[in-house]
Amino acid sequence: MPLVETLPVGAGTAQWQAWGTVARIVVTDPAALDDARELVEAELAAVDAACSRFRPGSELSVACRAGGRPVTVSPLLADLVAAALEAARQTAGDVDPTVGAALCGLGYDRDFAAITGRQVAPAVRIFTAPDWRAVRLHDLSLTVPDGVLLDLGATAKAAAADRAAARVALRMGVGVLVALGGDIATAGPAPEGGWRVLVQDRPGDPRCTVHLPAGAALATSSTAGRTWGRPGELLHHILDPRTGQPAESVWRTVSVAAFSCLRANTLSTAAIVRGQAAPNLLHGVPARLVTGDLDVLRLGGWPA
């Protein structure tokens, strides 16, 4: 996953476990670190309460159990669902939030940290759940078709990074980088020379360093990072919505830079699903794609 390679002079940083991954914050003023971390933790807690599919009491879980009846939701969940539906629209359904039941059927039915090492047998299933166009959101009224389990994992983590960074910059008046696993968002003034980020998914993978300007974001989607199952039959968490099965691993990782982490993650996830057609999707977008053989393809001005 991408990491801040060299901290800006005088910066402060903290990291902790959240959502089965590492959360990290870097601020340009170390005196603001404690308060900034508190703001980020509060934002993550609010997003988790709104849309975790692993918590029976989350707003999203309640809406999914409503039997197809409309449920009034918070502005936060409405924003997160709207973001997921817009990502589906932008990618012609490659990033589809209605794959929750398929993920559960494949064994990803709890927080990822709790399934690591589980010996889950891959299953062959016919995936018949309605696609994203069957979900209805009108203002704060959300209707999830009966039997459909929404999973906002492809967009909510990136949106949370964007929201948390913006909140810290606004409240604390500092430059800030928020990283949630492979999703990085920045806000406020950047350090001199930009945010220096090392892009490398796993030890031994190709690596490079990029400099993100103020307000830029970076997302990396991987078919190697979040895996589970039997040796030789490992599954990964990025599903092809058309089959309900893990997307073909044409790309080991796809990294995309944009001016929102939500946009970057939408494109990197869709690129994994598109497989060989990913370069067409990413035309003109700064992106770095790594094959299973660890060859690197750079697009859209990504630095060599």
Rank of each mutant, 00 (worst) to 15 (best):
R53D: 05
R207V: 14
P130E: 10
V99F: 07
G301Y: 10
E59K: 04
A129F: 02
R65N: 14
L33P: 06
A287P: 04
D295I: 02
I238Q: 09
V22F: 05
L281I: 11
R53T: 04
D162V: 03
V124P: 00
S52E: 04
V73T: 06
P97T: 07
S260P: 01
P191K: 03
G175Y: 04
V9S: 13
S141K: 08
D109K: 04
H236K: 07
V27E: 01
A123M: 11
N280M: 13
A214K: 07
V22R: 13
A78W: 08
P97H: 07
A78E: 04
V168I: 06
P56V: 10
G173P: 06
A159W: 09
T209L: 08
A78T: 08
E5Y: 05
A36Q: 02
I184Y: 03
A113V: 12
T21D: 02
P75E: 09
R110G: 13
A88W: 00
T220L: 14
G182L: 02
V120K: 07
A270T: 08
P56F: 05
A114G: 05
D29T: 06
V174Q: 01
Q200K: 09
G232H: 10
P97E: 03
T269N: 14
R53P: 13
E233C: 11
E233L: 15
V99D: 00
A165P: 02
V176L: 01
A78R: 12
A87M: 06
A88F: 08
P241K: 02
Y108L: 14
P130W: 07
D293A: 15
R298S: 09
L3V: 14
T91Q: 02
D183T: 05
Q17M: 10
E38S: 15
Y108V: 07
S255F: 01
G147C: 12
E43N: 06
V47K: 00
V178R: 01
H138G: 03
D162S: 03
P8I: 10
R171G: 02
A88V: 10
R118V: 11
A159Y: 07
R288A: 05
R65P: 02
D151I: 08
T143L: 12
G193R: 10
R69C: 10
R37E: 15
E59S: 07
W251G: 07
W251V: 08
V135F: 06
A42K: 13
G188M: 00
G244E: 02
G107D: 10
